[in-house]
Amino acid sequence: MDYFVPIFIASVVVVGLIRKVPLFDAFVEGAKKGFQILLNIAPTIVGLIVAVDMLKASGAIDMLCDFISPLADTLGFPKEIVPMVLLRPVSGGGSTALLTNIYKDCGPDSFAGQVASVLAGSTETTFYATAVYYGSVKVKKIRHTLVAALSADFTAAVMAVLTVRLILGSG
């Protein structure tokens, strides 16, 4: 795994060389887009992290976690990530705010931190994507879309715990 990142970058550069891409110009332009993304998400992140930090300070998140922990424990699910699982399909920014909260409290390399990372990396903002795509063509009867999409989200949550246990050996 240690070599994945350098080799990945090297292969991209090699493909770029073969295809005669102006390497550095392309890189600079891409990095500029990256910065643009950062600027675009900054206001959302500031607003939602403040809201989540307030929620955390008020004790509401802890109470939800404690409330759900017997069930989470039985399933072998870290209770700290339950609020994130619930918010993930609804709000990308909100779940990112909760993710940073988990990193802050437990550390990114803890069991909860790893499961939360995998979960965030293997799910999307389901309701947002559904609304954008169907909204664009004015389709209202979406039939079994949400059943299938939310089952996928649930699967990702279960698989996040399983893979972190089996592959990274924590928990």
Binding site: V12, G30, A31, F35, I37, A42, M54
Partner: peptide, 29 residues
């Protein structure tokens, strides 16, 4: 919260820009 969020954005800025740059090379290739 307000303070942390900006620190966070600044800390992740480098990585995010780096990867966007690499991916741009890939896309153009």
């Amino acid at each position: 919260g307000a303070e942390d969020s900006i620190n966070l954005l600044l800390t992740m800025a480098g990585m995010l820009m780096l990867w966007s740059g690499i991916m741009e090379i890939a896309a153009r290739g």
